[in-house]
Design a protein around this nucleic acid. Sequence first.
DNA 1: TGATTTCCTAGTAAACCCATAGTATAATCA
DNA 2: TGATTATACTATGGGTTTACTAGGAAATCA
Lengths: 146, 146
Amino acid sequence: MKVSTKGRYAIRLMIDIGIQSNGYVRLKDVARRQEISIKYLEQIVGLLQKAGLLLSSRGAHGGYRLSKDPYDYNMGEILKATEGSLSPVSCLEDEVNNCLRYNICSTIKFWQGLNDVINEYLDNHTLGELMEIEKNLKEKNIDYSI
Amino acid sequence: MKVSTKGRYAIRLMIDIGIQSNGYVRLKDVARRQEISIKYLEQIVGLLQKAGLLLSSRGAHGGYRLSKDPYDYNMGEILKATEGSLSPVSCLEDEVNNCLRYNICSTIKFWQGLNDVINEYLDNHTLGELMEIEKNLKEKNIDYSI
DNA sequence: TGATTTCCTAGTAAACCCATAGTATAATCA
DNA sequence: TGATTATACTATGGGTTTACTAGGAAATCA
């Protein structure tokens, strides 16, 4: 029941890019600030871009930027783009429903319920909210250091 | 974010044992009904027994039975016994909190919230409820076959 | 004693995670 | 144009976990 590094790093990357809100943000800078290998970030960012969550620009002064307002991203879409399906059991995935016991399964409703509460939570939290927290955290740290 | 077969099989096993409510239930029979390898079930049942969720009796006419009323089991304890921690990120596990970024992490509250909704759901559903569903499902299947 | 059933530990093939590496492609600037 | 910068794509590998399989010891009962 763990979210992999891909999903967790994706969220930190999105927050980081969102906060540097002027123009395109270089992956190199994200990697430095977040202490994540740039090569690994490249893979993660590729997934986010394919899902339309980020826009890219190649070459000098290139980088990545958000494709929409931070409050228009919900955390579910970011995680789904990087983690794939978030359902707790594979029987709930529409594409491949290969369980022979599906019709005689007394637990499917239970798992569906779990899936629902997870998705409801993730869909009701936005990137904008997390960016706010990050901003507040940064301000606090500056205050303490004075 | 997947529950492994251990957790899923454990639930089916507990339902199965709970429904055969007279005396000890042999693993051999559970394996046959649930179409799960008996050797694999042995390992799972060991975890459940260590957690005090099942009582065992060795030798001929031995087997396993529930240690308390079905409605006194919540699904969280069954899953935790077999899956280990259910928290979506390891930073939330009390024992080993080894993340150096903990104090400057803006996402920890988000993950804590997800952890909370998952645990709330699991702790508010009982084995007894799932046994009811299983019983209803069996009755229906019998009706159809007439 | 012999049949039955749990208990314990080891082994293993496959899948997945978490990167690292190298090369190709594209945009920019001097 | 040629050098530089940065993304894009694909392959590879070590380590861990998953999902079993296997063998035999220990306990219980007829």
